[in-house]
Every structure is written in C-alpha cells, then in structure tokens.
Design a protein around this nucleic acid. Structure first.
Lengths: 154, 154
DNA sequence: GCGGTTTATATAAGCAGCTTAAATTTATAG
DNA sequence: CTATAAATTTAAGCTGCTTATATAAACCGC
C-alpha cells in the first residue's frame, strides 16, 4: 500500500487538527457561562486533560505533569487557572508536605463532567462516522504516534 | 462498543501528541546543519506543511493560509522564516501584482525533500506497527476529526 | 478614465501555552 | 544536625497563533 501518501497526508493534517483543537470554541464558553462559572473561562485542551485525570481521583501536581507529559511549571499553571475559577482545590498531602494534592472543589465534579462533555461532542460526531474497527484503529494510531514521537526526543 | 472510553482516551492523547509534535527535536536541527543550512533552524510543523504544499507547485500566501487553515498573517510569518533560511522565494504574480507567489529557491527542492523526510520518520515508525486497514482508518479518523472541529467554529 | 470598494499581503500589538533557570519548602541520609 | 535531594512555585523568555490596521493593486459602475 502507499504508506508514503498516508504519511504525507498525516503530516499535513496533524498540525491543522492541532490548531483547530486549540482554537477556543465560542459555543463552549457560552455553555460554561450558562452554568454559572465566569463567562470568560477559557478551557484549553490541557485543562480538559486535568479535569479528566481528576475523575480518577486526586493527583499531585507532579503526577499531573507526568500524565500530561508537560513540565512541572506547566502543570502548576494549569492548576492555577482551574483553581482561580473555583473548579479545583489544592491541599497538602499529610504524608509528605511538599506535595500538593489537587482535587475537585466540592460539587464541581458534576460541573467538570459537563464541561468535558462539551469538549467530547465533536469527537463523538467524528467517531459516529467510523466503524468500531476504525474507531479502535484510530485511537491505536494516536497511541503509536505519541509513543513514536516521545521516543524521538529520548 | 464503548465509544465513551475511546473518546476520553482521545481527549487525553490528542493534546499530549500535539505537544510532542511541536517539541523541537534536537536530532532534526542537527540533521539540517549537516546540510549546510544554518544550525539553529527551527522547522516547526507549520513550516513542514508549507514545504509539503510547495511540492505541488508554487502557492500564493493566501493559498497557503487556506490550505493550512491559518490566518494570512500567520502564513506570511511562516514564509518569512523559510525565506530567511533561503529555502523559499517570493515573486509577484505577473497576472495580479497583489499576490505573492511562494516557491522553492532553485536547488532547494531536494533539501526540502530531505527535511520533510526527517519529519516523516516517527510517523513511518508508528505506521509500520499498523496493518493497512488500521493505517487507512487512522488517517480517515484524522480527517473526520479535523472536519468535525472545523464545523464547530462555523 | 476616475473615485470608491474589495482583495492580497504585510506590519503591529497582544495573548496563551509551553520551556528552562532559580527560589522555596520539606523530606531524607549520613 | 548538616548536606543533599525532591516537589512545587516564581520568573523570564520564546513561539505560534490571533485581531486590527496599513498599503498597494485590482475591479466596478458610471
């Protein structure tokens, strides 16, 4: 098969997709405002990642950095903004007072679920046009690509 | 099938993949320096997109902006940098002197091919671990996702 | 042909999200 | 009990985008 064409198409598609994903959707901020959170909230993909990670329980800043594959300062920043908007809370780990545990503010679990839900919509739309096999292959491809690029810079 | 899990995994994977793709690979800049172009060249994904687009012939700045789905100033910037490094050239379209046609500098076609080749490597690695069906499904997924996100902001 | 509008590009200013380097606080080890 | 290491934060800086504005060329109705 002509892999070369597929590779080139991916090289063209990926950055464009990246820009689209980053591009703040006006709909989204509208949705959020309707829920009583500040109108001008900017939920970036990184923030969504944090919100999703927290559904699996509280995380330290370092764990978040590792899970998202960003530097610790970047994780701090993400948490900062979510905390500003009252979505998450920091408290010290009693076991090791250096670590900062991040968790949802009481009651915000549900709000987070709905914010993530908004972000999920375009993905669900896209996946609805794939067969099960295709959807699985797509996610597998993302995983392989992430591994491959990660391997590149050691 | 459990699409919800796939969607969530994608929401976690995509931003991380984006960061990895953006992350300048030290190897790459080294490769480039060996070819006589300045050592500190930073070939971003956007620049790669331009180089690939130009393999299909000269493009106006506006055409590049449209093809990469970026604003015209962003396209100007991308061309600026490639021109600084002597990769591409601007000349006026004789048919319409407002449009700036961008094309490879004489002899740089081959250099561009090799620069793109470097960028292609991690993708080829990843795709080598997929079946033909999977590779096709993966690219189809990227296309669908791009369409879906593009549809979101009108 | 001639003013007024549209189109293609460029310049300017600004912002978001990352990075590395340095500072701070707490834990650990000898 | 001091020296070192680890977790987080602060600070500074860079890149790649954006919108708003400027400039030059083309087009259009008359």
């Amino acid at each position: 098969m002509d892999r070369e064409r597929l590779v080139d198409e991916t090289l063209m598609l990926l950055p464009t997709l990246m820009r689209l994903v980053e591009r703040p959707s006006p709909v989204e901020t509208g949705e959020i405002s309707r829920r009583g959170v500040a109108t001008d909230v900017q939920v970036s993909p990184g923030h969504i990642q944090v919100l999703i990670a927290l559904t699996r329980g509280p995380h330290s800043v370092g764990q978040l950095a590792e899970e998202l594959d960003v530097s610790p300062p970047a994780a701090t920043q993400l948490v900062d903004k979510l905390a500003e908007h009252g979505m998450v809370d920091r408290h010290n780990d009693p076991e090791d007072r250096r670590v900062v545990l991040v968790d949802y503010v009481d009651g915000m679990h549900e709000v987070a679920r709905r914010i993530v839900e908004d972000r999920r919509r375009p993905l669900e739309d896209a996946m609805s046009k794939m067969t099960d096999r295709e959807a699985l292959a797509f996610v597998k491809g993302l995983r392989l690509l992430a591994e491959s690029f990660a391997a590149e810079d050691e």
